[in-house]
Amino acid sequence: MTADTRRILVIGIGAGDPDHLTLAAVKAMRRADVFFVIGKGEEKSGLTDLRRDMLDEHVPGPYRVVEAEDPWRDRTPQDRSRYASAVDDWRRRRADVYERLIREELAPGEHGAFLVWGDPSLYDSTLAILDDIRGRDTVAFEHEVIPGVSSVSALAARHRIPLNQVGRPVHITPARHLADRVGEGPAETLPDDGDVVVMLDAHQTFTRFTGGDLWIYWGAYLGTPDELLVCGPVSEVADRILEVRAEARARHGWIMDTYLLRHHG
């Protein structure tokens, strides 16, 4: 790496609470010459505003922000193969945007930063997209990853529970794979091989698990002033979560939630 190498900082900024910024993240932000912000439309403009608030608080002096719109993504219900194809297509078009930003907005020798919600290593596309760009050999850069507080950590902290039980595993999965795991129709409970953290659940898969001793620890907008928390036996609180979730989505136009399913017995 030479003095004229472009450098990318992928900085985890936590699940939403500005106080979740680590000292390492703040130091990395102060090294950046330009911040790349990928907008997600007017409905989620508050997320962009929160990033700017973090910069105003922690980066002294003027800083430069370059914004770009996130490419459209097909989110209609799909089978596994069509879903994977839609995600691959969206990532390629997002990589086109990132490549242009790095090539045109970041001078050799400068540091450019992407501020990533949660932790960049957990269900975020930034690192895979940067690997895609490096493989194209169209613009040379090095990149560094600064970990952040994930929504999973924030969920456990807000419910005041450990993420794992003694001697038991914890699975982290998107809801799509959880649904595939139990097959079609309702399931009485999860297979008893560990607790499960479920992310990216647009279809409220937890409603299929209404029997046994299964509890849910659910959270949405974690770390923000709009944070919502519900916990209890799935059989008792599933309808409440559905109601709270629908009302919040209607009010904000979007929702980001996650939950832990745990056997109590």
Rank of each mutant, 00 (worst) to 15 (best):
F35M: 03
V37W: 07
K40Q: 12
E43M: 09
E43W: 14
S45C: 01
L47W: 04
L47P: 03
T48N: 04
T48K: 08
L50Q: 09
R51E: 08
R51A: 08
R52H: 05
R52V: 01
D53P: 03
L55W: 04
E57V: 00
H58Y: 11
P60I: 02
P60E: 03
P60L: 05
G61A: 00
P62A: 08
R64S: 04
E69D: 15
D70M: 14
P71S: 05
P71L: 00
P71K: 08
P71G: 10
R73K: 12
R73N: 08
R73Y: 10
R75A: 11
R75D: 10
Q78A: 15
Q78F: 13
D79P: 13
D79H: 07
R80H: 12
S81N: 10
A84K: 06
A84R: 15
A86I: 11
V87H: 02
V87Y: 03
W90Y: 15
R93L: 02
R93Q: 08
R94I: 04
D96T: 02
D96P: 01
V97D: 14
R103M: 14
E104T: 09
L106C: 09
A107Y: 09
E110H: 03
E110T: 05
G112N: 12
G112Y: 04
G112L: 10
A113D: 06
L115E: 05
L115I: 07
L115D: 11
V116D: 07
W117D: 06
W117I: 06
G118E: 09
G118L: 12
G118D: 08
G118T: 13
D119C: 07
S121P: 10
L122K: 06
Y123K: 03
L127G: 04
L127V: 14
L127N: 02
I129M: 13
I129Y: 08
I129D: 06
I129W: 15
L130S: 04
D132F: 12
I133S: 04
R134L: 03
R136E: 02
D137R: 15
V139R: 03
F141W: 00
F141I: 11
